[in-house]
Design a binder for these strands. Structure first.
Lengths: 194, 194
DNA sequence: TTGACAAACTAATCAGATTAGTTTATAGTC
DNA sequence: GACTATAAACTAATCTGATTAGTTTGTCAA
């Protein structure tokens, strides 16, 4: 009877990514992916290493895409403008790809070199934007953690429906970014004083 | 044969909460809870409304506890001190109860009145602390969203192993809170100017 | 033409959630 | 002290999903 339906790893991943954004990260099961592809569940094991393997690939794809988006957003901008642009690109990615965004939150273990590299690539973009502010290397990292916390926290709560009040979320986000930038300047002044 | 092992809803919830913090939110299954209690899975349905019901109760317990902790932390303090104390209490809760913290992230639907009330109670504590800064009601809410994003983002990344660098996390958190407070002051000054 | 391989399949097992229906310990009543 | 209603346990059955083992079959290249 059947064999060959021209399915490869890319098709599997593509369908999984689409399902994640359409129905949520949790909705990406081997069952739902196989159904979308018109094949039986065990056939998927010819292309990906089970559900954990599929999730790994989703995380990798997402992190790479996020890195690209952030790089694109920061190009040709400097200082506060660059940070603001970065922030909006981060949020836009999470909005466009809510399910994939969740997938990227998987922590990379040191032996997962591709994922580590993709994470480093994202970090590099932010480091480049933070460079001109002249903080010490450690402070730079502390500040990047703060920015990442702020962005992740906001979009995670937003996606999860955690903001109950009927209050414009775009406005909230704008003020949040502004607040970060102002806090950054305050710290910068203080650092120069020393 | 058997009946009566003196198990009630509180015992079920208690075991579930303990499992969540010990092994993670995902590890709280009806199977693991039943095993810990020494009963069969279906017996749990005498006490909780399945897994969704159990998760609801965990979220409710967690939100109430968080509200209590925050209130305790803010008592007798004002202004920046109160905010800093609140921030550290928030993080401490997430550290002490990582699994329960995850459970609290469940968005409350309007008909889940107990959960809505518990969420409101948490919000009230933060509103009270923010009150003296003199922002407009809307701005107050925007700023609270920023604070919540910052805190949630940090602890979520922290718990999830998202901070890869070997850099002191306590120090990062301290700087993050400081940055927020300074951003707050910058916004306050600006608001007064108008 | 044919044979090796990739990629599909079926079958079987396991874990977990849920529902239906059954049994029994115990608390409260007569 | 016996009796009965009920709460709280149970077994059995079903369902979904993941995984592994082993089988079959197109297709490409020699």
């Amino acid at each position: 009877m059947p064999a060959r339906k021209r399915i490869d790893r890319e098709r599997v991943l593509g369908v999984s990514l689409a399902l994640a954004d359409a129905n949520g990260f949790e909705a990406v099961t081997l069952a739902s992916v196989a159904k979308a592809l018109g094949i039986r569940i065990p056939s998927l094991y010819n292309h990906v290493a089970g559900l954990p393997g599929l999730r790994y690939e989703m995380a990798l794809w997402g992190l790479r895409q996020l890195g690209d988006d952030l790089r694109r957003a920061a190009v040709g901008k400097a200082g506060d403008d660059a940070i603001i642009s970065l922030a909006h690109a981060y949020r836009a990615f999470a909005h466009t790809h809510p399910g994939i965004y969740r997938a990227t939150l998987r922590a990379a273990s040191p032996d997962e070199s591709e994922l580590v590299a993709a994470s480093q690539d994202v970090l590099d973009v932010v480091l480049a934007v933070m460079e001109p502010y002249g903080f010490s290397p450690d402070d730079q990292l502390h500040i990047i953690r703060a920015l990442r916390s702020l962005l992740h926290g906001f979009v995670d709560l937003e996606i999860g429906g955690g903001f109950g009040m009927a209050l414009d979320r775009d406005e909230s986000f704008g003020q949040l970014v502004e607040l970060f930038v102002q806090g950054l300047h305050a710290r910068q002044v203080r650092a120069v004083d020393r």
